[in-house]
Write a protein that binds this DNA or RNA. Sequence first.
DNA 1: CAAACGTGGAC
DNA 2: TGTCCAAGTTT
Length: 362
Amino acid sequence: MKKSHVFEWNNSAFQQKVLAWYDQNRRILPWRAKKNSKPSPYHVWLSEVMLQQTTVPAVKKYFERFTSLWPTIHDLANSPPDAVMQEWAGLGYYARARNLIKCAGIVSADLNGKFPETEKDLKLLPGIGPYTAAAISSIAFGNNSVVVDGNVERIASRVFMVDNPMPLAKKEIHALAKHFYEGITSKRAGDMPQALMDIGATVCTPKSPKCEICPISDLCTVKQRNENPNLYPRKLPKAKKPHREGKVYWLETEAKQILIEKRSDERMLGWMFGFPGTSWDGVGNDFTAPDIDWDMVGDVTHIFTHFSLKLEVLRGRMPVGKVKLNKNQYLIDITEVENVGFPSLYKKVLKLALPARNMDPE
DNA sequence: CAAACGTGGAC
DNA sequence: TGTCCAAGTTT
């Protein structure tokens, strides 16, 4: 503990305030157990994976849809992987969905549908890292794990006024966050991380936190010193995003079919459907476009985490028999193409090419 | 360990 | 328009 704090740090005072706030202000979320009922490990796991690097509003509909289609881990495990990927379409970070499917298979087939209860065993499963293991073990099984997500990091960085920038400060912050959990009973073990996350999401927000209504403001160094909370956690400046360009092909047959392809594991958007094109992700080969007349439909731009992309959309038509399908390529009926769960990049291509196609005189 | 890995909403 | 961000994991 740094001696420089303007107050005497007291774990139990902090915890009491946080939990009392939670009892009055907890959010009602679809994956959360109602008061006095046990949480479902399946729901906790599914929601935690969906919520990784994603917002609560975005996850809600996906969670409802998944649990409606697949009420148990066995249902999910027994579903065709494509169906799961289709339902994940639009949520992003598709490795999460691929790992979700693998994890469901293991838990369903090898573990009799029971999730492990310890962090150590949970972490062995695909898609479950340090955070998610801690979250599941505490929320679903009542273990007093040190759960540190972005919210907890932010709260700790302000409460203890951590001056080292992220991500260097991760270890330091994690060590400080242990204080938040020290001595929590099993009865409250699952509430504590959720309470911190609720405070982080609704009070101790990244920008313009509501310190006036914060239950722990008198224990917060940044607040007590009148520092600017917006500056915490400190961060290193980010590198500029590179820009890439490529081509994507809307290839239609004279029988009103469209060529789509399932992207392989090692590519970006792996296991998702898309349209053929140049290798804009730097993996694999460019699509060899047939030697026909291609109409330029327009450009699609898309911003990924680490680069921006502009794809030129080209549209062409040829006889069915002339189309050579590579592995993982399919011709689907024009009436079905809108029902394919494309990732957002290809959804944009679709929205550009389909109307252009419908305006065509033929 | 730094970099890869999506998306849409807020300001 | 650009920038930041949201319950991280994997390699």
